[in-house]
């Protein structure tokens, strides 16, 4: 087909999907525009050109402070969080063989939330263990528990979903319990965190995210080739020479840590991990992870960044947390998806 281009040299041979490359380009440009807009708009408006010149080193003291210390790290946190959530969601949905799965549903985000909320309400946030670190640890602990509980001579997709829903229910009950034990101001703080917010995110949030993604992103894309074969079922995957359980464990681990770093930076932003892979599959016209994973990442980035922008501007001056905006965006899409499924059910 004409939409694919083959690249071959002595040591590499790749087939590139032009549509995927085009989409990545378009989403990248859109994200850069949203980034410029996001950095420029607010209580202290800065023209887009001035934003760009400030980024390249010009500008006065005040502008530099607003751009480089306040708005740019916040916007970058949004972008990186979106990338992590988009890829994690795509991996979870393929592993579970279920398009309705996301880290929110199978308890990974709940693990992060439980740990973070416990620390905010019951613990000492000024101690060695910070809230982001607690959230990351909670996500990983939930992932490990999920894997061990679902394991029965291997982890089947449906067990992952059922056990995951149980783990999530338990953790949500735990969060509710913690709330009943806390002081009202601590609970309020925990609640804001729980909605998913990018307020006051600085470089201390950007760097760990960027570092983790620098490792996890190539890893996820490389494992995408095994995910592609796993889509054909365990027997065929084994027949094609894949160590099925090892591949699944590696993919699960990558998706859990991606979720963990995203939630630890911005709280459990709702629906992004669920919806970004859906949009990616739709616009890619393929279900191959080699195309879906990168496009889901780019979609997630644009989604979180624009949701934060909308939350800041449309609800000025106080703004609403990004998690509420993503929920407002996602709800109609979810209904649309359901309607399509119903239509398909009715006709065939």
């Amino acid at each position: 087909m004409t939409r694919r281009v083959t690249v071959r040299t002595q040591s590499i041979s790749l087939r590139l999907d032009m549509r995927v490359l085009g989409l990545l380009g378009a989403l990248g440009v859109a994200t850069l525009l949203a980034l410029t807009l996001s950095v420029g708009r607010g209580d202290f408006p800065i023209a887009p050109l001035e934003v760009l010149s400030t980024l390249t080193g010009a500008g006065d003291e005040a502008t530099r402070f607003v751009v480089l210390e306040l708005r740019l790290p916040r916007a970058l946190t949004a972008v990186l969080t979106g990338i992590a959530l988009g890829i994690a969601g795509a991996i979870f949905q393929d592993l579970a063989r279920n398009p309705l799965v996301s880290p929110d549903i199978i308890g990974i985000s709940a693990g992060a939330s439980f740990a973070a909320v416990s620390l905010i309400v019951l613990g000492d946030t000024s101690g060695v263990i910070s809230v982001p670190l607690a959230a990351l640890g909670g996500a990983i602990a939930a992932g490990v528990a999920l894997y061990l509980l679902a394991w029965r001579g291997g982890v089947q997709g449906y067990r992952l979903v059922l056990v995951g829903i149980g783990v999530a229910a338990l953790l949500h009950a735990g969060i509710d319990y913690v709330f009943t034990r806390g002081q009202i101001f601590q609970v309020a703080e925990a609640y804001v965190w729980l909605v998913g917010s990018l307020n006051a995110r600085g470089w201390e949030h950007v760097w760990p995210l960027a570092g983790a993604l620098a490792v996890l992103l190539p890893l996820a894309l490389a494992l995408g080739r095994q995910l592609e074969v796993l889509q054909l079922g365990d027997d065929v995957a084994r027949a094609l020479g894949i160590g099925v359980e090892r591949a699944r464990l590696a993919l699960l681990a990558v998706a859990v840590v991606l979720t963990g770093i995203a939630v630890s930076a911005a709280g459990p932003i709702a629906f992004v991990a669920f919806i970004a892979p859906h949009i990616a599959r739709r616009i890619c016209g393929t279900v191959s992870p080699s195309g879906v994973l990168p496009v889901a990442a780019a979609t997630g980035a644009l989604l979180v960044l624009s949701a934060d922008l909308i939350g800041r501007l449309a609800f000025a001056p106080n703004g609403v947390p990004v998690g509420i905006v993503t929920a407002i965006i996602a709800a109609p899409y979810f209904l649309l998806l359901l309607r399509r499924a119903n239509l398909l059910g009715a006709t065939g």
Binding site: G241, T286, V287, S288
Partner: peptide
């Protein structure tokens, strides 16, 4: 596994594929 996979192929009775796979 990979060496076997180059020499021996199997088609199970009802293999799975994701919807929309070309």
């Amino acid at each position: 596994s990979r060496e076997i996979a180059k020499r021996l192929g199997i088609l199970p009775q009802s293999p799975l594929a994701p919807d929309g796979l070309a």
